[in-house]
Simulated assay, not measured.
Amino acid sequence: MRAIGVTEYGGPEVLRELDVPAETLGAGQVRVRVGKATVNPTDTGVRSGMRARGDRAEGVGDVPGMEVAGTVTEVGDGVTDLAVGDAVMAIVVPAGAHGAYRDEIVLPVGSVVAAPTGVTEAEAATLPMNGLTARLALDLLDLAPGDVVAVTGAAGALGGYVIQLAKADGLRVVADAADKDVELVRGLGADVVVPRGAQVVEAIRDAFPDGVDGLVDASVQQAEVVPAVKDGGAMATVRGWDGEGETRVRVLPVFVREVAERRDLLDRLRQQVEEGVLTLRVADVVPATRAAEAHRRLEAGGVRGRLVLDFS
């Protein structure tokens, strides 16, 4: 079974084709022929060793990747609402060779749903992990309709989903953007757009002097943006940052693996794509054998939408 991964950690150049064993199929599981897999910041952490497994044996590969789109090739006992030949999308919790960058993968049925109708396979691949992360972040904030949520990194894949889901929840959204991304972020639905960068807190406070009710920190600015949140407000973070003792604001780390088998949430995201609530953005599709190039582009910054690897 072909996969793209690493046997040693380092820069994009360490990515290579690996021969990994096919996974066995059990009850309640689905085998998916991977057509497309996205490239996310988490993947670069697996590749570089920042997210290394402590038990990895020498010479045994790690395979990155957290979301795929493809076709069902086999279903296990107890799976009744997916069938061979169905076009699907899925979230992957990577562990060793079990990552999305492979020709075929076995997943719990709770992580797999039908792909949205009317979209490409590459577009469908961009939704599961990023969409669930955005949904979980907003659910943790638990804001009421009419409340104000700030979004950093708003032009990115995660930030864009947060904006659109927040608007669907009835929230007011203030989002940051570089000059070149202002129209993009407005088009995603932000009510107020402020300049990104060192002055983002000041700009948010200018618009909302008491601070915002909640903030989703998709740009990983962490402590720098806490002052944008009002006293007693909440901030959802990625990369596990827990506030380091912050008491004025509730800091809520988002771990998407906690909802990786919440099929109801994933299927609702599918419906919201079909309803026109969510916009799927693909920056580029490249052959899986050029994964190193995709990693270099992502780490260089400025990518809008998701880079997608083609395994078809």
Results as ranks from 00 to 15, higher is better:
40 N>W: 04
41 P>T: 04
42 T>K: 06
44 T>G: 13
45 G>S: 11
46 V>H: 09
46 V>Y: 13
47 R>F: 04
48 S>W: 13
49 G>F: 04
50 M>P: 00
51 R>M: 12
52 A>E: 09
53 R>I: 00
60 V>S: 10
61 G>E: 00
63 V>D: 01
63 V>L: 04
64 P>E: 05
65 G>N: 05
67 E>K: 06
68 V>M: 00
69 A>S: 15
69 A>Y: 01
71 T>R: 13
73 T>S: 14
74 E>L: 01
74 E>H: 14
75 V>W: 08
76 G>P: 04
76 G>C: 11
76 G>F: 10
76 G>H: 09
77 D>K: 09
77 D>H: 12
79 V>Y: 12
79 V>A: 11
81 D>F: 06
81 D>W: 05
82 L>I: 07
83 A>G: 12
83 A>Y: 00
83 A>Q: 08
83 A>V: 08
84 V>A: 15
85 G>I: 03
87 A>D: 13
89 M>H: 07
90 A>S: 11
90 A>D: 12
90 A>F: 07
92 V>Y: 01
93 V>S: 07
94 P>M: 03
97 A>M: 06
99 G>T: 05
101 Y>W: 13
101 Y>F: 13
102 R>P: 09
103 D>V: 03
103 D>Y: 05
103 D>N: 14
105 I>G: 02
106 V>F: 10
106 V>H: 10
107 L>G: 13
107 L>F: 11
111 S>H: 06
111 S>D: 14
111 S>Y: 09
112 V>T: 14
113 V>Y: 09
114 A>R: 15
115 A>Y: 00
117 T>L: 11
119 V>G: 02
120 T>C: 04
124 A>T: 03
125 A>D: 10
126 T>V: 07
127 L>I: 05
127 L>R: 02
128 P>Y: 07
130 N>W: 11
131 G>I: 03
132 L>F: 13
132 L>S: 14
133 T>S: 15
134 A>G: 12
134 A>V: 11
135 R>W: 13
135 R>L: 14
137 A>N: 15
138 L>H: 01
139 D>V: 00
140 L>N: 04
143 L>R: 07
144 A>K: 13
147 D>M: 02
148 V>L: 02
149 V>I: 07
149 V>Q: 01
150 A>P: 07
151 V>S: 09
152 T>W: 05
152 T>V: 03
152 T>M: 10
154 A>T: 08
154 A>L: 12
155 A>F: 04
155 A>I: 01
155 A>N: 06
156 G>C: 12
157 A>D: 10
158 L>A: 06
158 L>S: 06
158 L>Q: 04
159 G>I: 10
160 G>N: 08
161 Y>A: 10
162 V>G: 08
164 Q>F: 10
164 Q>G: 03
166 A>G: 14
166 A>Q: 05
167 K>P: 09
168 A>E: 15
169 D>R: 15
